[in-house]
Computed example of a mutant assay.
Amino acid sequence: MKGIKQSPRLGRFHALAGALALAGAALSAHAAPVTLNVVDVAGNLALTQKALEAFRDQHPDLVSNITFTNAPSPQLPGKIKAMQNAGRSDIDLVLTGTDALAAGIEQGLWLKLLPDHEAEFKDILTRYARGPARMQELAQGYGLEVTFMPAGPLLEYNPAKVQNPPKTPAELLAWCKANPNKLIYARPANSGPGRTFLMGLPYLLGDKDPYDPINGWDKTWQFLKELNDCVPYYPGGTSAVMKELGEGSRDMTVTVTGWDINPRALGVVPAEFKIQAFDNFTWVNDAHYMVIPKGVSAEKQKVLFQLLKFMLEPKQQAMTYDSGYFYPGPAIRDVPLSAAPAESQEVIKKFGRPEYDEMIARRPNAVPLDAKAMVEAFRKWDAEVGALKK
């Protein structure tokens, strides 16, 4: 209105109000819910998808949608590298085993979480139980372990056919020679139980260096070549092994906790089949990790940091008992089976092994080979053991 002069104080008030309105609009825009694209290269979604969906449902202000994709582990690092080189960010979170974790660290693909974002993940590492804590070290700060399995090596057998299960590698070799074609295991490069058996033998046989498959496994390679004489062939994956075991064409195989429980829960292997641990064995651990590729926007990073912390809370960790697929599953301490969903408790009660908890507590555990050594071990097995059947 003409002739009325605005006071300086009122002008400052209006300016401040305008600035606050702009700031509020900026905050509102920044806080818009995001879509997260999750890629699983480890079969981990069987254990975690329900928890990831729970985060979405409980935080509609942060997440509008989560897409889930399964992909082969060997192909992922190259795909992410190509996207990063093109300045694109189509994958927000990767669920991986030790293989793609290590490959991504080597190629510089993952966002460094610790110590770079230590304020976001304060005290998170103190949540891990003893065995998982050793596996978390493999992430070198580039990811957070979400599930854990002290895998094996273990033997699984048909008790109607095997009255005296082997307790040492020597006894296994003797049994195999006395019962040709009745022991089977899958090619280690394509099988968790096969891989765990391969990595567990150096401890059982007293080899020079369990972490050096080329120069430190003389006893292991000799044993596997001798065992080869009574093994019919090596299937390309564990599912085929369990099918033959369940159908009765084989009487014994190597296994790990999850591959013991889950096929029996699914009815692939008879529920009454038993397991035998080797005397004085060392658990070779397995784990899955959550990693964020470099190039993910700062806006999404903030949401992902909240998601990662959510996944390591007891309630979500209890879901990872699942149907025994990666037993026990939880990576953090103090998550008993009694905290798991009712259906998981029922499966583990019916198909689990009471002795597992005692064995996990009593026996030492070791981290698996790093990526480079594991590839070397696979190549040597393929060339010097698997090739003998061709």
Rank of each mutant, 00 (worst) to 15 (best):
K2A: 15
I4W: 09
Q6C: 14
P8F: 09
R9H: 15
R12I: 09
H14V: 14
A21I: 07
L22S: 00
A23M: 12
H30M: 07
V38W: 05
V39R: 00
A42S: 12
G43L: 01
N44P: 05
K50A: 11
L52Y: 01
L52N: 08
F55I: 03
H59N: 12
I66R: 02
T69M: 15
N70W: 14
A71K: 08
A71D: 11
P72G: 07
Q75W: 15
P77E: 06
K79L: 14
A86D: 13
A86S: 13
S89T: 03
I91A: 04
D92W: 01
L95Q: 05
T98I: 06
T98W: 08
I105T: 01
K112M: 10
P115C: 05
K122M: 07
K122T: 15
L125E: 13
Y128Q: 07
A129E: 04
A129V: 06
G131L: 02
R134Y: 13
L138C: 07
Q140W: 09
Y142G: 04
E145P: 03
A151M: 03
G152W: 00
E156V: 06
N158R: 12
V162M: 01
N164R: 13
N164L: 12
N164D: 14
T168R: 01
E171P: 09
C176P: 05
A189M: 13
A189W: 09
S191D: 03
P193W: 04
P193L: 03
G194Q: 03
R195A: 10
F197V: 01
L198D: 11
P202F: 08
L205R: 00
D209I: 10
P210G: 08
I214R: 00
I214V: 14
N215A: 10
W221Y: 10
V231Q: 00
V231E: 04
P232V: 00
P232W: 01
P235C: 08
T238F: 15
S239G: 12
M242E: 15
K243F: 10
L245V: 10
G248R: 04
R250P: 01
T253L: 05
T257P: 12
G258R: 05
D260Q: 05
I261G: 01
N262K: 12
P263W: 05
A265W: 02
P270D: 05
P270T: 11
A271D: 12
A271N: 07
Q276A: 11
A277M: 11
F278C: 06
D279W: 06
V284A: 00
V284W: 03
N285A: 11
D286S: 14
I292M: 02
P293N: 02
A298N: 10
K302Y: 07
V303W: 07
Q306M: 06
L307V: 11
L308W: 05
P314W: 02
Q317L: 02
M319R: 07
M319A: 08
T320H: 01
Y321R: 02
D322S: 12
I332K: 00
R333Q: 13
R333M: 12
P336C: 05
L337F: 01
S338G: 04
A339P: 08
P341Y: 11
E346Q: 14
E346F: 14
V347S: 02
I348G: 02
P354D: 05
A366I: 05
V367W: 02
D370P: 09
A373L: 13
A377I: 04
A377V: 08
R379E: 15
K380I: 12
V385Q: 05
K390A: 15
